[in-house]
Design a protein around this nucleic acid. Sequence first.
DNA 1: GTTAGCAGTTACCTAAAGGTAAGCACTTAC
DNA 2: GTAAGTGCTTACCTTTAGGTAACTGCTAAC
Lengths: 124, 124
Amino acid sequence: MVKLQTISAEWEACTALSAVQDALYVLNGKWKLPIIVALSSGNKRFNELQKTVKGIAAKVLSHELKEMELNGFVIRRVHNTTPIAVEYELTDYSNTLGNVVDALREWGTMHREKIRSQLKKEVV
Amino acid sequence: MVKLQTISAEWEACTALSAVQDALYVLNGKWKLPIIVALSSGNKRFNELQKTVKGIAAKVLSHELKEMELNGFVIRRVHNTTPIAVEYELTDYSNTLGNVVDALREWGTMHREKIRSQLKKEVV
DNA sequence: GTTAGCAGTTACCTAAAGGTAAGCACTTAC
DNA sequence: GTAAGTGCTTACCTTTAGGTAACTGCTAAC
């Protein structure tokens, strides 16, 4: 016999599952969230962004920024100065990712600690 | 002149960035978080898991489960029944991902709503 | 004795992500 | 006048993730 409780838990898990899959569908890849984090402390220009997000190639950054502009995560602002300056800015929509970013940041910090303490043990 | 505030904000953003990158390094790919969500409502057997996580191929599931076992996210329990039954269980370590999963679930739900309302507008 | 379910594995393939390196059109600084 | 920076783009290549489909060895049910 299956309990009602179990059925309801399964149902909740199932909707949670598709919601998480939906989120991952747009946030896929190595770079989108890091770029959002980099921009969350203020607008940045292309080369600044490339320096901030460690390890990203210009080609990949350019590609990701285009995709993110299309999906409404960033705004590309061209300033009519000489030489031309291009600034990238987060949209309000990106800012709704605050909780996701915070959760990942906390977990990432903890995870790094765990890995570091494991390494220590192995050395000793 | 650069304000101290700005410097400190930049510094925080930078550590946040690496923490997020660390987290994404282990949680990469389409399937790890969905598998964790599927298991979060209770242990599951291989075929149950494959039915729950929509769209995953047996090969991919098998591969992901092995990797997740190595990384300490799941435990593989073999029951000595006939025929043999294999159960997958989350570790305590996976359970520390609760906030990440919750944040993604909430955001995913909101995101789907947004996309749906955009589609409506386009049709009308 | 054949079908179906469990828990996968194997071989093969495609598409996408990502990396390397070069270049372009412009400008400022030395 | 040449080197260096800005904001990219292009061409080319490698790696990896992921998908398809077939198959294995086992058992239970019809």
